[in-house]
Design a protein around this nucleic acid. Structure first.
Lengths: 122, 122
DNA sequence: TTTTAATATCGTCTTATCGCGATATGTTTA
DNA sequence: TAAACATATCGCGATAAGACGATATTAAAA
């Protein structure tokens, strides 16, 4: 077995998600399976950096990897991860709503963001 | 405003949750409001370390802090955080279940863990 | 008002993480 | 089989995170 326990994997998943670039990668892959060469142009990071981030998400079991000729395709393994992110947003929104009246405005803008709706195909 | 956006707070929340000690602190505080002096004996970490972890959780808006005389009381701000953690576990379990038959056993043991049921009082 | 208790903060050390360019690996095309 | 392409991995520097002991702060108790 790769993981010792659910608890370890739990931390690994949360760790993988606690980085802005990796969250953007998930957002990007919400569209569906993509090869690295399609991902790269969408990010202002070096190829090695993106490769490493994708690997971290893969090791956490969030992404699935498929080699197709000279390319590598990545895709979301379980769309539940988007529910998770939306729940984090819900938590964040409650905080902001409590603090400022701007909460409602932010809530509105979130509703139109990438994670606001169910992932199309995964 | 302390936070620039929901997106920043999202990362901050996930970051706060991606540490084993902090997850244990939440587990401990699932029982209800506790002062640091009650928390300390339950953890094999120095007072300064625990104080820092509590502060990180507080800054992420996960814990609420109340000063009562010479003590400081911490409590879970929003029990939604436990739903979040349970969802991470669900994600973790699906992975383990796919890999090994032990998945079912682990699933069973998780069901009896601290995060398996709704938080009592918060 | 000195002492004690409860927490927070500071300084420091060690280790991990992020980013990059350079290089290695494997695959297709010429 | 050599060149080009796609991706992973290595090595490094810079920064952040985690841990601790020591010190500062504040409140209650003596």
């Amino acid at each position: 077995m790769t993981q010792k326990s659910v608890s370890d994997l739990r931390v690994k998943i949360l760790d993988a998600l606690s980085d802005p670039t990796r969250l953007e990668l998930l957002e990007f892959l919400a569209q569906g399976e993509r090869c690295v060469c399609e991902i790269l142009p969408a990010f202002q990071r070096s190829q090695s950096t993106i490769s490493k981030h994708l690997n971290i998400l893969h090791e956490a079991g969030i992404l699935e990897r498929k080699i197709d000729g000279k390319r590598t395709l990545y895709r979301i393994k379980d769309p539940l991860v988007f529910d998770l992110i939306r729940m984090v947003d819900a938590l964040a929104l409650r905080q902001i709503s409590l603090l400022t009246d701007a909460g409602k405005i932010l809530q509105k803008s979130l509703h139109n963001s990438q994670f606001g709706a169910e992932a199309n195909r995964c």
